[in-house]
């Protein structure tokens, strides 16, 4: 029961937070002036008229990072369940070695990305 209680409080906080934001925006709406002009609504590009579309296609370089991240972060979720029990009675060294093997996989992945030049920009 504690389990659900804890998260229901968290849920409550989230609701409070949303309320807070809503109230703040609502109040702001009452307090601020509304005088839109086409110039104001123009996309800002250092004072000159914008060139081309805002959603331009950009370098895809970051994609590789997100890739790396997804792989590693997901692997690391295995770390947490293990981290809490590996020192408990009956596990000990062998479990540790297993996790080192696992970390070894992560390290190989990193090494691979490094050697393949993913981390170099030029």
């Amino acid at each position: 029961m504690d389990y659900f209680h804890g998260y229901s409080v968290v849920g409550l906080v989230a609701v409070v937070g949303v309320l807070f934001v809503a109230v703040a925006f609502g109040a702001g709406r009452l307090l601020r002036p509304v005088v839109p002009t086409p110039e104001k609504l123009l996309t800002y590009e250092c004072g000159v008229d914008p060139v081309g579309e805002g959603w331009a296609h950009t370098q895809i370089r970051y994609y590789v990072y997100s890739f790396l991240y997804v792989v590693f972060a997901v692997d690391s979720i295995f770390l947490f369940p293990w981290a809490t029990v590996f020192a408990a009675k009956g596990y000990g060294g062998a479990t540790l070695v297993e996790m080192f093997v696992f970390l070894g996989f992560l390290a190989v992945g990193l090494l691979y990305a490094w050697k393949k030049g993913v981390l170099e920009w030029t």
């Binding site: 890739f67 997804v70 792989v71 972060a73 997901v74 692997d75």
Partner: peptide, 9 residues
């Protein structure tokens, strides 16, 4: 979760 991540990758 891992499978999903690998798939998305």
């Amino acid at each position: 979760i891992v499978i999903a991540a690998a798939e998305i990758g």
